[in-house]
């Protein structure tokens, strides 16, 4: 009796198993969506780039922009160790993705609405892809991608000018930091970063190709568009 039941149960499980394989094995042969592949591949390149750059927190050169501050009369002196983790990640992401020829972004500027809606959904915060036309340096949106951050998804927008120079805007949610909004500057190697925290969103704008002054003008334009 028990033996019969066991045999029947085996037969039953076999039927279920066969059915499940018929239903779901086709998924194994589907091409893996780029967003999933990029996640892992991007991450491993990220690590490699971090190592290649010899990235250490202590090696960061940190400064505060004296010329531009919300509190015009104050200069904020910050210790090197206080550079938020997301700023280092932003600089590494810039170093990894900006030389990319074939896949600089996951979703192109031709689908800007979709891109912004998607990244906003993943970050759980309403985002915008700022326009840089007013800066006068000729930078236009190339597109963006989703990246893994310290505590969740991060939005990464890329811009390019006619000469092919690129800059990237890195946005993370749930950023904690100095409530005092001011642009801060950090650099590693040839990557320059201006960053700030505003209403729980952390922003970092990075470039290796343009001057600190021009990058500041871009950061200023981005900030003004996000806070009209």
């Amino acid at each position: 009796m028990d033996k019969d039941n066991a045999t029947q149960e085996d037969a039953e499980m076999k039927l279920i198993s066969q059915g499940l394989h018929q239903l779901y094995d086709p998924v194994l042969d589907e091409p893996v969506p780029e967003r999933l592949r990029a996640h892992v591949v991007g991450r491993s390149r990220w690590r490699a780039a971090g190592v290649a750059a010899g990235w250490v927190a202590a090696g960061l050169a940190v400064g505060v922009v004296a010329g531009w501050q919300l509190h015009a009369s104050r200069t904020v002196a910050i210790a090197q160790a206080e550079v938020p983790g997301f700023v280092k990640r932003a600089a590494v992401a810039h170093a990894v993705y900006s030389p990319e020829v074939r896949h600089p972004v996951e979703v192109g500027a031709d689908q800007e609405q979709h891109l912004v809606a998607w990244l906003s959904k993943r970050l759980g915060a309403p985002l915008r892809a700022p326009k840089l036309d007013a800066v006068g340096l000729g930078y236009a949106l190339v597109g963006g991608r989703l990246l893994p951050g310290e505590n969740g998804p991060v939005a990464h927008f890329m811009y390019q000018c006619k000469e092919g120079k690129r800059l990237t805007l890195y946005v993370r949610a749930n950023a904690v930091g100095n409530p005092e909004t001011a642009f801060r500057y950090a650099a590693e190697g040839n990557v320059k970063v201006f960053y700030w925290i505003d209403r729980k969103l952390g922003y970092a704008i990075s470039s290796a190709d343009i001057s600190r002054e021009d990058l500041l003008a871009v950061a200023d334009a981005v900030y003004r568009q996000l806070n009209p």
Binding site: Y24, V27, L28, D29, E30, V32, L36, V40, V41, S44
Partner: peptide, 15 residues
């Protein structure tokens, strides 16, 4: 290797 191993397993995770 970690990344390769994970990439290889993505189809299984998707299924």
């Amino acid at each position: 290797n970690d990344a390769d191993g994970i990439v290889e397993l993505i189809p299984r995770l998707r299924r």
